[in-house]
Amino acid sequence: MEPLLSETESTALWLTLKVAFWSVTISILPAIAVAMALARGRFPGKSVLDGIIHLPLVLPPVVVGYLLLELFSRNGPLGLWLKSTFDVSIAFSWQGAALASAVMAFPLIVRAIRLSLEAIDPGLESAARTLGAGRLRVLLTVTLPLSLPGLLAGTILGFARSLGEFGATITFVSNIPGETQTLPLALFSKAQIPGGEAAAVRLTLISVAIAFIALGASELLARRMRARIGLKERGPS
């Protein structure tokens, strides 16, 4: 019996999941920090930071990919630095694909976390301080637990955005099967060649399937989390 997925397909699928996983993983902590700064901080240049963070949402992805290429190519400033310091190069590798996805997903993740931070009643944090909690304890025991729904939403959004990342990825790390050819890139390649329609349809179905699985899982998680932090508290007493 033939396996459900061809080798090319399963390679592309696993690569896509790997890239999406790492893109969210490297984004999440910086995203929390930036969301905190934007939601709570008062500092000069806040609106500039806000603008820069949101840039990937409004720029054509190809532009973002090109900028990354300029920065991280073997002769780019950051590429040279990475090469000399860590002896690594991320251009044209799956790590580069993860970075491109992370940059594109970052504003979405920050936005989701920031919204949930802003929804937290600051009175709860004051209450924690009157009970003797220092800043770090307030952050770890009150602020972050209460922003978990936003954190989860941000993670899911970022993951979904990474699964579909195309423009920045293909510009930055090209379309190399087995290295940087994620599902959307594979689909693009198949659609370009005559007689590739059947393969393209299969890749489309795979994409639809993981989209559904991701949505279902996130809904389930969100429901459990809302119950856990007792969000019905917000209702009338």
């Binding site: 709860l124 209450a127 301080r129 009157t130 009970l131 003797g132 909690a133 209460l146 932090i229």
Partner: peptide, 20 residues
């Protein structure tokens, strides 16, 4: 003195219990 070192028990009108 910072709030957390004042050792004053505050009961707010809306309770402000931690919902989670």
């Amino acid at each position: 003195t910072p709030v957390r070192n004042r050792r004053l028990g505050v009961v707010f009108q809306d309770g402000r219990l931690f919902p989670h």
